[in-house]
Design a protein around this nucleic acid. Structure first.
Length: 410
RNA sequence: GGCGAGGUUCCCGAGUGGCUAAAGGGGGCAGACUGUAAAUCUGUUGGCGAACGCCUACGGUGGUUCGAAUCCACCCCUCGCCA
């Protein structure tokens, strides 16, 4: 099956350039393509996953990914559908973020010899000469046309600085530069990148007379309308295990809406379509089987098989009462701390399960606090050494937040 | 640069001297119901404290007042119209 057809079947293609030439282009021979990621945070999150998975499919099909970190463009800020300018980042921040992103991406892409390459556009953008740039790049852009691009039009109402207005030119120049230096012929991006990508393919055609391509991935939303990127219950879901534990990552997937199961299996796992069709054909509670597989596979891709299985086992233990609790995130309490006097309120706050003492009391009043499966009626109850001994005490706040409090080793 | 409108708690948005930790909505959280789903209903939603209470919060800084989100002065920022 053709790569493009595979991507389309999985729902990974939102828009594409060219009129039919793209399919053949991807089959003819291995190509070099690029996908840009702005290094504006220290971790990727769920919103970055689709382009990343798409890139992974493409690499598996023999193409070579260039991962572009926008060290320079992050300073400018992409105006695409955003309503505020971004805070300024220092070069140090960008470099730190870039390294973090690469680490996370190695789970998805092979950065070995001949494989994916990480590039920072600060390399070629920071020292541009303004007049040169205007003469060689700026001349190819029509302001009239730029104003008709959706992402710009959307910002015309709230305002858009000249700085941000230039973003499109810089991103287009990236494409031109990568075409020249790496023979990069395709750019992959999120749906919001369409305008920037098309501007890039146009620029390469005008300057180099070459036909290059662009693909955008859909902006995925859940069935309840939430963007994957932000505002998930309990905060954003990050790929960095320090920010979102593999257990919580697994839990995110298993808690997905019934209606999203098929879509998510296609987008976020490498399972063959036959398997996916079978899993999504279940009904009612039977869909839970598919969700467990979704959660296991998606977690395995992001954190490795071992972590994923531990997360699954912990989930089974907590929710179904089967098996061991090794994978449940644990939290160490020193015996000394207990000795100084510690109540359940302290314990829940210090474990990170609850943000404040008031919150613990509120939860207790509403009947949402548990220790070892028993509802807590008095959060002021002292914590004893015995209760933490051995396997520790399983803390639970609400239906789904768990943590295991254990006594520190020393 | 001129004129006009505005900056309120996570978001939107009411509030024009004390009854205001601040209406209402959204979102979040919890409980019930369930399948760790959806929908629905109920409760809850700044921090510390067992509690009288204390602290922090209405763009910023000063001021008026027994008392200010609310009045005054200056400053910063956003939006609109004009130049």
């Amino acid at each position: 099956m053709e790569l493009l057809a595979v991507l389309e079947e999985r729902g990974m293609v939102y828009q594409k350039t060219g009129t039919g030439g793209l399919g053949k282009f991807l089959e003819d021979r291995p190509r070099v393509f690029y996908a840009g990621f702005d290094a504006t945070a220290e971790s990727l999150h769920l919103g970055h996953l689709v382009p990343l998975m798409t890139a992974a499919h493409m690499q598996r099909a023999g193409h070579r990914p260039l991962i572009l970190v926008g060290g320079a463009t992050a300073l400018v800020g992409d105006p695409s559908f955003r309503n505020t300018e971004r805070p300024l980042l220092s070069q140090d921040d960008v470099e730190r973020y870039a390294e973090a992103l690469r680490t996370q991406m190695t789970r998805f892409l092979d950065f070995g010899p001949g494989g994916a390459v990480l590039l920072n556009n600060a390399r070629w953008l920071m020292d541009l000469n303004y007049i040169d740039f205007l003469l060689h790049v700026g001349r190819h852009f029509s302001v009239n046309r730029m104003l008709t691009v959706d992402s710009v039009k959307a910002r015309l109402e709230t305002g858009l600085s000249f700085l941000e207005f230039n973003y499109m030119l810089l991103q287009s120049f990236d494409f031109l530069h990568l075409y020249r230096t790496w023979n990069c012929e395709l750019q992959l991006g999120g749906a919001d990148q369409w305008g920037n990508i098309v501007a890039g393919t146009d620029l390469v055609r005008r300057v180099e007379g070459a036909e290059v391509y662009g693909i955008t991935c859909p902006l995925v939303t859940t069935s309840t309308g939430e963007k994957m990127s932000k505002s998930q219950p309990g905060g954003a879901v990050w790929l960095d295990p320090k920010l979102t534990s593999p257990y919580r990552y697994y839990q995110f997937w298993i808690n997905s809406d019934d209606r999203d199961l098929g879509k998510f299996l296609r987008l976020y796992t490498f399972l063959p379509m036959d398997t996916i069709r079978e899993l999504e054909s279940d009904t009612g509670a039977g869909l839970r089987r598919g969700k467990e597989i979704l959660a296991l596979e998606a977690t395995a891709i992001a954190h490795g098989r071992k972590e994923a299985e531990a997360a699954r086992d912990a989930s089974r233990a907590l929710f179904l009462g089967e098996g061991g609790l090794e994978g449940v995130p644990s939290f160490e309490v020193s015996g000394d701390r207990v000795g100084r006097g510690m109540t359940l309120v302290d314990l829940f706050v210090e474990s990170g399960l609850c943000p404040s003492r008031g919150e613990v009391r509120r939860l207790a009043e509403q009947g949402g606090l548990y220790t070892d499966g028993k509802r807590v009626t008095d959060p002021g109850e002292p914590v004893t050494l015995e209760s933490l001994a051995g396997d520790g005490l399983i803390l639970r706040a609400g239906k789904k937040r768990h943590c295991r409090a254990v006594l520190a080793a020393d």
